[in-house]
């Protein structure tokens, strides 16, 4: 879709200790960056449940940013490594659900890296702008067969469980 007026809507999950502080620093230093990432503060990037991403896409987000402390710098010792593992899984999962993996970006930004965070936001905004609107749930509606197929899988699964027990 080549809509010039398209402004991507991106949800950003920023960890309290590094990236959220970096975004504050970008502000204090009056760095200007794309307005597309709307920020949600979590204590740690490890709190970001992959379902949050699906929720965001289902609600109409075009992209998601997860930002945490650099590997080795986690305020909670090593929880950003768990984010990395989940991110690897998310990257595998997204294309299967009809979402380009470029729509999700994992960023490391220390509390001193306002500039880097601002640049990452600009980059992701541009990347998503190029991809165009996602319209994830609407796409589902247009192709209703998919939902029925998914529901059928769930039903089969439930039946299979009942047989086993």
């Amino acid at each position: 879709m080549s809509d010039d007026s398209f402004e991507p809507k991106i949800v950003g999950f920023l960890c309290n200790w590094c990236s959220y502080t970096a975004s504050d620093l970008a502000g204090t230093a009056r760095m200007k960056y794309a307005p597309n990432v709307r920020i949600i503060r979590v204590m740690c990037s490890g709190r970001v449940d992959p379902t949050f991403l699906l929720k965001a896409f289902a609600m109409g987000a075009d992209g998601v940013m997860i930002a945490g402390c650099h590997p080795g710098d986690c305020h909670y010792q090593q929880q950003n490594y768990k984010t990395m593992r989940r991110y690897a899984m998310i990257e595998q999962m997204l294309p299967q659900m009809g979402i380009e993996r470029e729509r999700v970006k994992l960023v490391w930004a220390s509390a001193a890296e306002g500039q880097q965070l601002a640049e990452a936001i600009d980059e992701l905004s541009e990347a998503v702008r190029k991809l165009g609107p996602l319209n994830w749930s609407r796409n589902w509606e247009e192709n209703g067969g998919r939902i029925e197929a998914l529901e059928a899988i769930v039903k089969e699964h439930e039946e299979a469980l009942e047989v086993q027990s």
Partner: peptide, 10 residues
């Protein structure tokens, strides 16, 4: 999440 996407809920 719902809040930040208040204007894009399809």
């Amino acid at each position: 999440i719902e809040g930040v996407l208040y204007d894009s809920a399809p």
